[in-house]
């Protein structure tokens, strides 16, 4: 026991350890603040926050939950990408492959799917909470705008992911969605004051064709795994940054 302890002590005192963990863990206010400041992951927090901001009753923890779900989506999504091919011939087969063969394939897909649904709900609840507490009021106007954009990106992320299994549910949900787009005024070929034909309208741009086919699947895939997550990540960064810069979480005036 004592030998083990002294070994542990020696490790703690080694140059390697101290190069990684720069301070000790004595329960002092200084250390508590240092913990936050010196950790890249934690320092999105301030060192101290008003105590009402730590109450679930006030925040519902919805922003945090949404962020966590985003991380879950990224991790499970990356893993699923190992077995998914965005090609019409294979996409559905790969779903079956994940379902029946790949170890933990089914549970990863389930988590990815359900977390996505949950994320939509939490992001909407987060918006509701922010409105109810009036937290969009100056100086946080712009962060609300960023938040609305994040809401839209979340919707789009979920929507683009919906097509990827290439099953009937996906196909017809996206068909209905895509057909709404063609009624866009001016830039949709069936909308009022249409300026373009069906080969040059916004729906064509989105689907890469006049119907949902191989191009649409690939486009949705690229949007789902690259474009939108990147946009979301950037917006989340801005969102968090602005929380800090606008004075932390909102508080009663």
């Amino acid at each position: 026991m004592s030998r083990k302890k002294s070994l542990w002590k020696r490790v703690r005192r080694s140059q390697v350890w101290r190069s990684v963990f720069r301070h000790d863990y004595t329960d002092t206010r200084r250390n508590r603040i240092l913990q936050i400041r010196s950790n890249i992951f934690l320092h999105i927090h301030p060192a101290r926050i008003p105590s009402h901001a730590g109450r679930i009753r006030f925040t519902w923890c919805m922003g945090g939950i949404t962020f966590f779900l985003f991380i879950v989506e990224v991790i499970t999504g990356i893993l699923l990408m190992f077995y998914y091919r965005p090609v019409i011939e294979y996409a559905y087969q790969d779903m079956k492959y994940l379902r029946f063969d790949v170890p933990f394939g089914i549970i990863l897909r389930n988590i990815h799917r359900w977390a996505a649904h949950l994320m939509i709900a939490t992001v909407m609840l987060h918006m509701l909470r922010v409105f109810l507490t009036g937290s969009y009021k100056p100086p946080r106007e712009f962060n609300w705008v960023v938040g609305v954009n994040l809401l839209v990106v979340t919707f789009l992320l979920s929507f683009t992911g919906y097509l990827l299994p290439w099953d009937q549910l996906a196909y017809w949900a996206i068909t209905v969605g895509a057909n709404m787009i063609r009624a866009t005024p001016f830039i949709g070929h069936e909308g009022p004051f249409a300026l373009v034909d069906r080969y040059h309208d916004i729906r064509f741009m989105l689907l890469g064709g006049t119907e949902i086919g191989a191009n649409a699947l690939l486009r949705f895939y690229v949007l789902h795994v690259i474009v939108l997550p990147l946009a979301a990540a950037v917006l989340v960064g801005v969102h968090f940054w602005r929380i800090r810069k606008d004075g932390g979480i909102s508080r009663p005036l």
Binding site: L79, F82, Y83, Y97, D101, V102, P103, F104, G105, L108
Partner: peptide, 11 residues
């Protein structure tokens, strides 16, 4: 471990 196992498909 599960993630590693995930990378080894059965067929």
């Amino acid at each position: 471990a599960g993630t590693l196992r995930f990378l080894f498909p059965r067929v």
